[in-house]
């Protein structure tokens, strides 16, 4: 899969990238903030978009709104430290709570995508 990863925390981004590339054999494009994420999402085609909840310039929810606003239906998974925000459930396909178990992250992504297809 080609995945867009929008995450401002450099360390978390490195780990996510490693997990997705080493364990899941996915191709990862990284965006450091919300604005870059919107630009990249509109200029390239992705199979999945992973958005951090809190980012500078534009937070995850705003990025998701803009991507959905431009008519894209690419699945969106939020990465969040605050899992009880109800908007993550309605705007995205699913969410992964921080801190996550990196060895299980690819399995969790598959699970979210599978249940979205099933529904």
């Amino acid at each position: 899969m080609k995945i867009l990863l929008a995450e401002d925390d450099h360390h978390v981004a490195v780990i996510m990238k490693l997990c997705l590339e080493k364990i899941g054999q996915h191709e990862v494009v990284h965006a450091e903030d919300g604005e870059l994420a919107v630009q990249k999402a509109q200029s390239q085609a992705f199979d999945l978009i992973i958005l951090d909840g809190m980012m500078p310039k534009k937070n995850g929810l705003i990025v998701a709104q803009e991507i959905r606003g431009s008519g894209q239906t690419t699945p969106i998974i939020f990465l969040t430290a605050k899992s009880d925000e109800p908007a993550y459930q309605t705007l995205g396909t699913g969410y992964i709570a921080k801190p996550f178990e990196p060895t299980l992250i690819c399995a969790r992504i598959e699970e979210i995508l599978a249940s979205a297809k099933g529904a």
Binding site: D9, H11, V12, I15, M16, L18, C19, K22, A81, K98, P99, F100, E101, P102, T103
Partner: peptide
Amino acid sequence: PMTSIKGSLSL
């Protein structure tokens, strides 16, 4: 930060 620590250790 817990995400980074846990992630690094787990990998």
